[in-house]
């Protein structure tokens, strides 16, 4: 009788031990030597796109996001690509603004080898020239319409 009790007791203890192994996953961390692609997103006013929804699309799947998250306070977002090809990162807010970055990752070492290094928001002299060009186009259109009406 004592032997049976011992066997039942051992079996119960073993069961608890096994359940403990099954449910209680431990956690840990280690420094990663992988190179991340870090991007900064901003509005045309220069203001950072802080805490905005960010989605990363891998070269293999254009429809479902490979990774999603949010930018930080300074509009920064980073990811670690796992394949070569063109990666897309889309950051958007709830007010209808969206910014898309295309990053080309090379096969060797999975490093950035191309794509748009920065978005094409003009500034400085280029902005001034474009503004002048725009005003010129508007007045030229007006003059064409005016001449047509005069004839």
């Amino acid at each position: 009788m004592m032997r049976v009790k011992y066997v039942i007791g051992l079996a119960f203890a073993g069961l608890i031990f096994l359940c403990g192994e099954a449910f209680a996953h431990g956690t840990g961390y280690r420094h990663s030597a992988l190179k991340a692609v870090a991007l900064e997103f901003m509005y045309s006013t220069g203001e950072a796109m802080s805490y905005r929804e960010a989605r990363v699309f891998s070269p293999n799947d254009d429809k479902f996001a490979w990774q999603s998250g949010r930018t930080d306070e300074r509009g920064r977002f980073a990811f670690v690509p796992n394949a070569a090809g063109m990666w897309r990162v889309i950051v958007r807010d709830e007010e209808g603004h969206q910014c898309e970055a295309s990053i080309l990752i090379s096969g060797e070492g999975l490093e950035v080898s191309g794509g748009e290094a920065e978005s094409s928001i003009p500034n400085g002299m280029e902005l001034f020239i474009r503004a002048l060009l725009g005003v010129s186009v508007i007045f030229n259109i007006a003059m064409i319409i005016r001449r047509k009406n005069a004839h």
């Binding site: 503004a131 005003v135 508007i138 007045f139 259109i141 007006a142 005016r146």
Partner: peptide, 17 residues
Amino acid sequence: DPEKIVRTAFTSSVFFL
């Protein structure tokens, strides 16, 4: 109004800038 085309262009430019 054809007479107001220059005014339209001017206002459009202001909005553009």
